[in-house]
Write a protein that binds this DNA or RNA. Structure first.
Length: 363
DNA sequence: AATAAGTCCAACCGCGGTCGC
DNA sequence: TGCGACCGCGGTTGGACTTAT
């Protein structure tokens, strides 16, 4: 590992922290606070640069850190937030109490990206791979998907669920083996179809979050309906009202909740990739190709024109999709008196924030 | 049993923003 | 206004650990 330029100058320690160093830093910060980080190492008697001390505190020593593996709900929330915020790890981490941006970033890079690919979803755009790719890229991605699936089969943990991936209308679940050999960072829930998980339900935390992607917008429908055959019509249309504003403004592909992707196939071929492809066929259903492209371009331009900083600081501005929200939440947010004439959209979004708050206990 | 390959994660790098002088 | 110090963030990497051969 490298070393901060300041560490070179001052011949400071680098690399892993010893328990003694941790103790010194913990004691110092607990007692005096960190104040100016650059002065912390000297005051705490550490041969480290302030930057290193700050990082150690934030990522490891902070008392409010949550230890242990990520829950399914946390993973779902990360995926959904990533669809909105992209690689803004600190913003994502802010919605997950006790988790650090570094931790989330690592989880994303090591696990969640693969999971999304296995579900036929591009981890960058959160759209189906079949939609993202074209030409050579398509072949490349498909090969990658095959490889991933192949890797899954070679794993003891995933062998049991292989039939789900292989595609058959009457898949079987090998219930003869326990889950004890599951990969440490991939829970069995990710590999199991809905109905095989005992307590898991699709994330409701973001179910009304005005995501640009439709995970949230559709998850209520899907999570309350475990029968995949009802998620789409036989022609691949999503079941919600296509005449609604929602349908006409949506720029993203309709997706079943990620946790149930393997089941979410209204045809015999149940593999994730083909499902994603089926799902993408419902994209802008009813429009001509040129009309679809035009609409996509318009919406993309609208999004790009807005300042990202504004989005991040005030996700209420996450337009143009916020107006698609249904106003069906029972939780009301206290009116923000500082905000002059808050729009209906803002109020609706505020409810989503409130819902997140209620679920996680803080924002 | 040895070792090559893969995975995970703590920690570093470098950049951009902010603030005070 | 310019400059430097500091902070925070996202990207990257080194190495420990695990799994496969």
């Amino acid at each position: 590992m490298g070393r901060h330029s300041c560490c070179y100058k001052q011949k400071l320690r680098k690399g892993l922290w010893s328990p003694e160093e941790d103790e010194k830093l913990l004691t110092h910060v607990t007692k005096y606070g960190h104040g100016c980080w650059s002065s912390v190492p000297k005051q705490a008697g550490l041969q480290r640069c302030g930057k290193s001390c700050r990082l150690r505190w934030i990522n490891y020593l902070r008392p409010d850190l949550k230890r242990g593996t990520f829950s399914q709900e946390e993973e779902d929330l990360i995926i959904e937030l990533h669809a909105v915020l992209g690689n803004r790890w600190s913003q994502i981490a802010a919605q997950l109490p006790g988790r650090t941006d570094n931790e989330i970033k690592n989880l994303w890079n090591s696990c969640l990206k693969k999971k999304l690919k296995l579900r036929g979803i591009d981890p960058v755009t959160h759209k189906p791979l079949s939609e993202v790719q074209n030409g050579d890229d398509k072949d490349k991605e498909l090969n990658e998907l095959k490889l991933l699936k192949s890797e899954s089969r070679t794993s003891d943990a995933t062998k049991a669920y292989t039939p789900i991936m292989e595609g058959c209308s009457s898949f079987k679940y090998n219930n003869g083996t326990s889950n004890t050999n599951l990969p440490t960072n991939c829970s069995s829930k990710d590999l199991l179809p809905d109905g095989f998980t005992t307590s898991y339900t699709t994330s409701g935390l973001m179910s009304n979050f005005p995501l640009q992607m439709n995970y949230a917008s559709t998850s209520d429908t899907f999570s309350s309906n475990s029968n995949p055959s009802q998620w789409f019509t036989k022609t691949g249309r999503p079941i919600f009202n296509m005449n609604s504003e929602f349908a006409s403004h949506s720029i993203s592909t309709v997706l079943a909740p990620a946790q149930t992707s393997y089941l979410g196939v209204p045809c015999d071929d149940i593999c994730a990739a083909s499902y994603a492809e089926n799902a993408s066929q419902s994209h802008f259903w009813g429009l001509t190709d040129s009309a679809k492209e035009t609409q996509i371009q318009v919406l993309q331009n609208q999004t790009e024109e807005a300042k990202w900083g504004d989005y991040v600081q005030n996700p209420i501005l996450m337009l143009p999709v916020t107006h698609l929200l249904s106003d069906n939440l029972g939780v009301m947010l206290p009116h923000n008196k500082q905000q002059e004439e808050p729009s209906q959209t803002c109020n609706m979004f505020s409810k989503d924030i409130q819902k997140l708050t209620a679920s996680f206990g803080h924002i």
